[in-house]
Each structure stands twice: as structure tokens, then as C-alpha cells.
Design a protein around this nucleic acid. Sequence first.
DNA 1: AGATGGCACTTACCAATAGTTAGTGTCGAG
DNA 2: CTCGACACTAACTATTGGTAAGTGCCATCT
Lengths: 129, 129
Amino acid sequence: MDPLEAVGPAPDLVSDVFARACTSRAAFEDVTSRWSSLALLALGEGPHRFGELRRRVEGVSERMLAQTLRALERDGLITRSDAGTIPPRVDYALTPLGAQVAAGLRGLADVLESAVPEIDRARLDYDAR
Amino acid sequence: MDPLEAVGPAPDLVSDVFARACTSRAAFEDVTSRWSSLALLALGEGPHRFGELRRRVEGVSERMLAQTLRALERDGLITRSDAGTIPPRVDYALTPLGAQVAAGLRGLADVLESAVPEIDRARLDYDAR
DNA sequence: AGATGGCACTTACCAATAGTTAGTGTCGAG
DNA sequence: CTCGACACTAACTATTGGTAAGTGCCATCT
């Protein structure tokens, strides 16, 4: 057996989010970047058109949304389907991998949403000093 | 029964990460911001000193790490304990809430770490166009 | 019928944000 | 006796992100 061939089977041990050069770190940064997480969360509720996403994710500029969606598509987390019609119609949806990620983000969002009173208290305490 | 009184009991329904003005949105952005998530991930492995975190999270500047940790402390996700000695010694650790969040982030990181081959493939495909 | 707004973007410009470098004061190691 | 570690902060600069406007076509409102 080729020794080079034998390296393949355990790729999960070599990927590390903490490593600057690792793909997982880059993907993690893409996923957790300001608008990506919100976009993934929105797509977790079902496919959306560009304008729908723009309205759902309060505060995104069109520029940043387009940029964000391109990055997520590149990482294979979402699909983009352009109907090619006029007026234009483009639908975005999660891939299976994207769905996993979105589920994780939903979990995080749930934790934080229900912790709002606790967080507000902590902030008040902190700001009092 | 006072109609105003009846609104109180379900605070989980009023917090929404998508709402720009909601505390949960702000906290979510703090948690998912570039260095926070990595810092929380590191603290998920146990308490760390400032310098330890700096080394663990490859690429953070001292400035950004200090800023990040202050934000997380303010939100009640981590604690900061200054021994007051010289040379200085400051330990950071997760609060129970922070631990919940860190666990969620760990899940995300695990998904992405094991999806590295898939992501690499998706990127190659995308870039080929 | 002419103006308005939605569609999914892109481009140019400028403000805000993040990274880089240098400094603080004390101590232990070489 | 100079160097580095420690946990930061302050000043400067590079990069990023938000704002505003433009694209071309169509449907609706007036």
C-alpha cells in the first residue's frame, strides 16, 4: 500500500478552528461573521429570496447581504438559484451542511433569547462600575 | 385581570435575534464576532490567563483580545479575576451562561471541522467558475 | 400616460472598525 | 544588566463596512 494513500482516513484530527491556516477556521469565521449567522438563521426557516432576506435581517445593506451570500455559497452552505426571468428572481436555500450549521446557530440564538433578562442585569451591573 | 399584567409571563416570545433593538441581537453579535467565538471556545476547555488566550487564539492582537474579553464580561458570559499581584495575573473563566454558549459554539466548530473536505471541494467548484 | 416602486444586484465614496507598533512598571532568568 | 513575560493602553494606519446612487425592466398607482 502506498504510504501516501494511508494518510487519508482520519481528516477530523487535523482540522482545528484555532489554527489560522485551517479551512475550518476560515469557514467558522464566515459562519460567525456579522451578517452570515443571521442570514443562515433566516434560511433555517425556509428558502428566501434576496429581498426577503434583506427585510428579515434588519439592518443589512444590499452590498453586505450580496457579499455574505456569495461567501456562504462558496463554502457550500447555501445554494443560489437564479430563475433567469425578468424581473429577476433568485432563491437561496440551505444545503444539508448549511442546515446543520443553521441548527447550531438556532441553538445559540435560543440560549441568548431566553437569557435576555440575565444579560440585561449583567450589563447594568457592569456599567454601574 | 389587568390586560397590561397579562403581557408579562412570556418574555421568551418578545426577544428576537432578528430585531435590531433586542438585547439578544446585540449579545448574539458579541458572541459571534470575530474573536469572541474563538475566545469562548478556548475558555470552554477551562480557565485561561490573558497571555494563554492570546497564544491559543492564533492571530488576535492584544488590543482586540482585551476589547473582546471586556464585551463578554459585560454580557455576563465570562468572569475576570485579577489577582492584583505583580507581575500581574488575570484569570478568565466561563459563567454558567457562558458555558452554555461555548457548548453551542463547540458544536458548530465540530460540524465545520469534520466538514473540511466537503467545504474544500465546494470552494474549488465555486472558484472554478 | 407618467411617475413610483420593486426586483437583484454593482460601483464609488466615506466613515467606522480593526490591526500594528510602541509604551507602561515590576519582576525573574540568563 | 539586559531581555522577556505579564496584562494591558494609546496613537497611528490599513482594511472593512455602511450609504447613496445607478442598472434595466416590469407592475401598479394616479
